[in-house]
């Protein structure tokens, strides 16, 4: 009996809250947005700001103590040839990984968006996403074995009698090395593999939004397939390519595990940040290095916007 009386009052309370919120849309918005904004603002942006402020401090070279006075000295250190080298190497790697990923991803995304239906589409989605289900480290170590001097690639090349090509590739200065697993070629290969899904999915989403009738209209107006691709499909898919490249580019800029496991002893940005804030204890320099990807990404997005990458959005 008690519940029978209580239930309607509860319902009435629920309805009252609903009505109150309905009449005060701003309050509802505030209730929905404040918790995530607090999380994003305080925890994420706050800690990032705390890190960035460190970059304006400097380290006393004798005592190793952090001097809490604002200075640009640490930033000047970034411009030392050894550091500049690291920045340029990382940016070049990120750019080439992005280009390669886009080139490989586009046809796959195109097929998924425009041709695959039903089961085939599901299989493709699964194939693209499946690698993301297993640990990143497992996959990177698997690649170390694949690329090793005793690995399957060297073996296959030898069996096919094309080991000369492999040797020629590895003898190229800077990107080569004694084996794929200890060369920049290897680092590049693994980066492309690991970030590929992040490139395929946005391109696929962009292509899926292009109505079939627009492609037919292009042909109808006299454009052969390659013109339709260049003048219609590519510009409309470009925001997807840019979205994908933001992932591949920024992820490559910041990663410190892949170059550590696969690659030469030449350092990448992420590794320097890792070393400087850890073993070296030079937090200001690590923080200054952290600013680099942010600046590079800002430049990258500005250029992309200038090129009209977001016009079709």
């Amino acid at each position: 009996m008690a519940t029978a009386i209580e239930l309607p009052t509860r319902q009435r309370l629920g309805r009252r809250i609903s009505t109150a919120l309905l009449l005060r849309p701003k309050l509802l918005l505030a209730l929905l947005l404040v918790p995530p904004l607090l999380w994003l603002g305080v925890v994420y942006l706050g800690s990032m700001f705390a890190l960035l402020i460190q970059s304006f401090f400097s380290i006393d070279e004798f005592t190793g103590m952090i001097q809490r006075t604002l200075t640009l000295r640490t930033y000047a250190e970034l411009l030392r040839p050894a550091h500049l080298d690291i920045i340029l190497r990382t940016a070049a790697m990120a750019a080439s990984v992005t280009l390669a990923a886009a080139a490989i991803a586009f046809p796959i995304a195109y097929f998924m968006a425009r041709y695959a239906t039903g089961r085939a589409k599901a299989v493709f989605y699964l194939a693209v996403m499946l690698p993301l289900w297993s640990s990143y480290l497992v996959r990177v170590y698997a690649w170390k074995l694949i690329l090793a001097k005793e690995g399957i690639i060297t073996w296959t090349a030898a069996e096919l009698g094309v080991e000369g090509w492999l040797e020629a590739l590895l003898s190229i200065p800077v990107i080569g090395g004694t084996a794929l697993s200890v060369s920049h070629v290897g680092t590049f290969t693994v980066f492309v593999y690991i970030w590929l899904p992040f490139m395929i999915l946005p391109i696929q989403a962009a292509l899926e939004r292009v109505p079939q009738s627009i492609i037919e209209a292009s042909a109808d107006l006299g454009a052969p397939p390659h013109r339709t691709f260049r003048n219609v499909i590519l510009p409309l898919a470009f925001p997807g390519v840019v979205a994908g490249s933001i992932f591949t580019f920024s992820l490559t800029l910041g990663d410190y595990i892949i170059p550590q496991i696969i690659g030469s002893s030449r350092l990448f940005l992420g590794q320097v940040v890792f070393v400087q804030q850890g073993t070296a204890g030079n937090i200001p320099l690590a923080a200054a290095f952290c600013v680099v990807p942010i600046v590079v990404m800002s430049i990258y997005l500005t250029v992309a916007k200038r090129l009209g990458a977001f016009d079709a959005l």
Binding site: P211, P235, D311
Partner: peptide, 9 residues
């Protein structure tokens, strides 16, 4: 075309 199919870009 029925939906006009204008090029949005």
């Amino acid at each position: 075309f029925q939906d006009y199919a204008l090029f949005p870009h």
